[in-house]
């Protein structure tokens, strides 16, 4: 890998790391959700040195064109991230349902009391 490519990957990883860090500091990104993205940015930074092990890993996996291994790895990270967010959305949907039902019932009771 050329030095330019290595620097580009490291800078991209660092940029993502500091953007997330800044968003957490400004309370626009929850700390628990940020962990996943910190890990992603560290993996990207690690990707700058992928050439040291990618050829042997590709040989081990039987992949003829080594850069494909990096792409597969990145796609896997994205899939895991999306699964995590789908799980979070499911949980939030359940909570919203509970709140909506409770709010509607409280409104009903309040209206009844007002009418009395």
């Amino acid at each position: 890998m050329s030095l330019g490519a290595r620097i580009f990957i490291i800078v991209t990883g660092l940029l993502i790391f500091f953007i997330i860090f800044e968003l957490v500091r400004r309370r626009r990104f929850r700390e628990d959700l940020s962990i996943l993205w910190f890990v992603v940015s560290l993996i990207i930074i690690g990707g700058a040195f992928a050439d040291t092990f990618i050829n042997s890993l590709a040989r081990f996996l039987g992949v003829g064109y080594p850069p494909i291994v990096i792409i597969i790895f990145l796609i896997l990270i994205l899939i895991v991230s999306l699964m995590y967010f789908s799980m979070l959305i499911s949980e939030l949907k359940s909570r919203i349902k509970e709140l909506t039902q409770k709010l509607a019932f409280i409104e009903y009771e309040l209206d009844n009391k007002r009418e009395k």
């Binding site: 349902k97 909506t100 039902q101 709010l103 509607a104 019932f105 409104e107 009903y108």
Partner: peptide
Amino acid sequence: VINHAFNLGYGGALQS
């Protein structure tokens, strides 16, 4: 009358 703030779906309404 119970009035949901937004649409929860048929099952959500029944459960209410």
